[in-house]
Write a protein that binds this DNA or RNA. Structure first.
Length: 626
DNA sequence: GCAAGGTC
């Protein structure tokens, strides 16, 4: 009885094989360079004793979806035909080699067991694996295929998964199928329509063969950039006024902040000041509050957080960060870099990874102090878990001989310092707040004294320092002479253009893309020239191009019936809700597809009817800027 | 020549 196990990627196949094989694993090469076959024996406790097992892997999805060749022509096929056109699955040239390997291994196997990641896409990839085997050997089916349920690679957990297999989740498969079909149809239809319409009306776009693409993630991403840009442009500054109190203790002057902040009414501020002046020429110390101030260490590192931090601290684009992290992963220096999980599994031995860092010249002694001086603290637990991968952490020490580029070295150092910070204690300090009461008004002054840096010693990207100016020595209920109190003024400051970090946060919060694809969507709207980077000071900010503005403004000027807004995150969020409904069984794939396609059909009809408006909006934007 | 999702 031979069992064929198939994981989503080679690294998982290897880890699982090592655990189940118990150190007795034979490795064979496959027809695809990134996949290996691992042979071992394992007792599944299914009455068959020790079974022969081959553990292999795919490399993500096996098939991509496309329209048949008769729909290829953009000129002779009306775009809206693609709402109904048949869709077929095609294997890419790489997946053909992977499928070949699986089929070869399946030939001598009686059972198939799926070990893909336990998320929605993983479930679908499992389905693709079954399909590819079943096409050659019809005795294999969804029904008789086993599914291992695992959320991390801890030994006893993996063994339990092997002994308690379930079935593939058909609802999850249907949900992914829905997303694929909808994204392909709407993407192709709107892209063909926009490209041909814009090229027909703008000779430069035609000459450059520019593609004006629509995608359910591209447009909301562009929408965020345009939204902020418009808010900056339409900002009108407003004047405000506030009280600035200065007291004198001994020979030194101390400024106190007005607890009302600022007020947009000068007359009112003046009246308040006059009230106070009439009341007394002294203020009273109404409270002195001393309390500990904690500077919390970061949560364990997710992909999105890594991208945000690298954009902030090193000005790396999200895409560059991810590809450098991938390179570090394949070279074995860091853990899998695509993860949403921000808490470490309870049983994971973190000290083993700290130990490996003790040899470093820069942070080695800090790592040593965590272990030897018992300064180690269990990392904080975040609320997110993708049930597939632990947070990003260093796996092996980066030897100096490792052939890495500067970007990879910087990111490796960040991953290490972030990890060591997670295993440290929080920063600790004391905060003192003195409150003065003067007539009807209150004023405060605050100081912070840093006592222990702890994690900040190794996480040297952000500074935490004590307040430089000491607070005056005052006692509770002490009467303090007012030295002076002025009315000062200022203006509200405009928001700034979006940074890539902020864009990533917005996409993450609105469910636009996944940790693995957010960077790609941003990159895509850059290559489409919908947005560009603009350096403001030392910070890179994102601004829309005239074309990007034209697209969003154009769609916004069309009056869609059902409040459909193609450039807003609403539609995508709604799809996500529907996909969850399919997963939970409250809706079927057919039902959701029917409803969503109907929605997009109406939107497309309105778009084609208002094509002139789209073109005019872009033309107007161009002439405004001339 | 179109999308978004996996992975290397």
């Amino acid at each position: 009885m031979k069992v064929l196990c198939v994981a989503e990627k080679n690294s998982i196949a290897l880890s699982v094989a090592r655990i189940l094989g118990g150190g007795n694993v034979k490795t064979r090469s496959s027809t695809y360079k990134y996949v290996k076959n691992y042979d071992f024996t394992f007792d599944f406790k299914d009455g068959n004793g020790r079974s022969n097992v081959t553990m292999t892997a795919v490399s993500g999805h096996l098939y991509s979806h496309d329209f048949p060749s008769q729909y290829k022509s953009w000129d002779t096929i009306t775009a809206s035909k693609l709402f109904e056109a048949q869709i077929y699955e095609k294997a890419t040239s790489d997946s053909a080699k992977i499928i070949q390997n699986i089929i070869k291994e399946a030939a001598s196997s009686l059972k198939l067991m799926i070990w893909t990641d336990c998320d929605r896409e993983g479930e679908y990839i499992g389905y693709e694996i079954v399909q590819s085997v079943q096409r050659k050997y019809p005795s294999f089916s969804i029904e008789n295929t086993l599914r291992a349920q695992f959320s991390h690679l801890e030994k006893s957990h993996i063994v339990r998964a092997a002994l308690n297999p379930t079935k593939l989740d058909k609802n999850a498969v249907a949900a992914v199928g829905t997303r694929m079909e909808l994204d392909l149809r709407t993407g192709a239809i709107f892209t063909r329509f926009l490209t041909t319409s814009y090229q027909r009306n703008f000779t430069d776009l035609k000459a450059e063969k520019r593609i004006i693409s629509y995608g359910s993630c591209q447009f909301p991403t562009l929408g965020f950039v345009v939204d902020r840009y418009k808010r900056v442009r339409s900002f009108i500054k407003e004047p405000f006024w506030y009280l600035d109190l200065i007291i004198k203790k001994g020979r030194i002057q101390y400024g106190f902040k007005w607890s009302r902040g600022h007020i947009f009414d000068r007359v009112y501020v003046t009246a308040l000041l006059e009230n106070c002046l009439a009341f007394s020429d002294k203020a009273i110390v109404s409270s002195i509050v001393k309390k500990p101030k904690i500077n919390y260490k970061p949560f364990p590192l997710t992909t999105v957080e890594l991208q945000k931090k690298c954009s902030n601290f090193f000005k790396f684009s999200a895409k560059d960060t991810l590809s450098a992290a991938e390179s570090l992963y394949t070279k074995g220096f860091i853990s899998y870099p695509r993860t949403e999980t921000d808490s470490f599994p309870k049983k994971m031995d973190l000290k083993e990874f700290i130990e490996k860092q003790t040899q470093d010249a820069k942070w080695g002694s800090y790592a040593k102090s965590l272990l030897e001086d018992h300064k180690f603290c269990q990392p904080r637990n975040g609320k997110n878990n993708d049930e597939a991968h632990p947070p990003i952490h260093p796996v092996n020490y980066l030897s100096l001989s490792a052939n890495l580029n500067a970007k990879e070295k910087t990111i490796y150092e960040y991953v290490v310092r972030h990890f060591l910070a997670c295993c440290s204690d929080d920063g600790k300090g004391d905060s003192t707040t003195i409150t003065l009461k003067w007539g009807t008004e209150t004023f405060t002054a605050n100081s912070i004294v840093v006592r222990e840096l702890n994690y900040l010693e190794v996480y040297n990207y952000s500074k935490w320092v004590s307040t430089t100016k000491m607070l005056p020595e005052l006692e509770l209920n002490e009467e303090v002479p007012i030295f002076k109190c002025d009315i000062k003024d200022g203006f509200t400051a405009p928001p700034s253009y979006l940074t890539e970090t902020e864009l990533i946060s917005l996409m993450d919060a609105n469910g636009i893309g996944t940790d693995a694809t957010i960077a790609e969507h941003i990159e895509k709207i850059k290559t489409r020239e919908y947005i560009s980077e603009k350096k403001v000071g030392t910070i890179k900010r994102l601004v829309p191009s005239e074309l990007g503005m034209g697209l969003v403004q154009g769609f916004e000027s069309i009056d869609f019936n059902n409040n459909i807004s193609l450039s807003k995150p609403f539609l995508r969020k709604n799809l996500e809700i529907e996909l969850k409904n399919i997963c939970s069984g409250t809706k079927t794939k057919e039902q959701v597809l029917r409803e969503m396609i109907q929605l997009y059909k109406e939107a497309f009809q309105l778009t084609t009817q208002n094509c002139d408006t789209l073109i005019k909006v872009y033309k107007d934007i161009q002439s405004e800027n001339k």
